[in-house]
């Protein structure tokens, strides 16, 4: 009984995770500039990947595998913001990106010689 419930929960979590990943990729294509795209990729992407791993943990009925999946989730949640942060920082160092509302990011002036676009 309880194992059936676990499997059904796992199914829902799996589809939910896949949906979030799909939304993340749609966001990366639809959103207008790098930073907003990064919101979609880092948040929806991490949650989507994490939910799929959670579905593995729920449906495998093996404590060792479940633990590995949970460790994978923790790892994913730790690394995704670091990756996004590094990329945002790299991009911020080489460009002054004009944002949608017209405010210009001039946090550092030393690399302003050549906007990339």
């Amino acid at each position: 009984m309880i194992t059936d419930l676990l499997v059904y929960t796992g199914c829902v979590v799996l589809v939910l995770g896949a949906a979030f990943t799909l939304i993340a990729s749609i966001g990366v294509v639809r959103l207008p500039d790098l930073y907003t795209r990064m919101h979609a990729a880092s948040k929806a992407g991490a949650v989507g990947g994490g939910l799929v791993l959670l579905a593995v943990a729920l449906t495998c009925f093996d404590a060792g595998v479940a633990l590995r999946a949970v460790v994978g989730i923790v790892f994913l949640l730790l690394t995704t913001p670091v990756g996004a942060h590094l990329l945002a920082r790299a991009n911020h160092h080489i460009t002054d990106q004009k944002l949608n509302d017209g405010s210009i990011t001039q946090l550092k002036s030393r690399n302003r010689r050549n906007p990339q676009r």
Binding site: L14, G17, S25, A41, G45, G49, V56, L87, N91
Partner: peptide, 30 residues
């Protein structure tokens, strides 16, 4: 820009990871 491509590549590996995990569930091979 290159940064956009790297971002998409990063997302692509996360999606591929989800894909492999979904295959793990479907086949039962952990």
């Amino acid at each position: 820009t290159l940064a956009d491509r790297v971002l998409a590549l990063d997302l692509l590996t996360v999606v591929a990871m989800g894909f492999v995990a979904a295959i793990a569930i479907r086949t039962g091979l952990t």
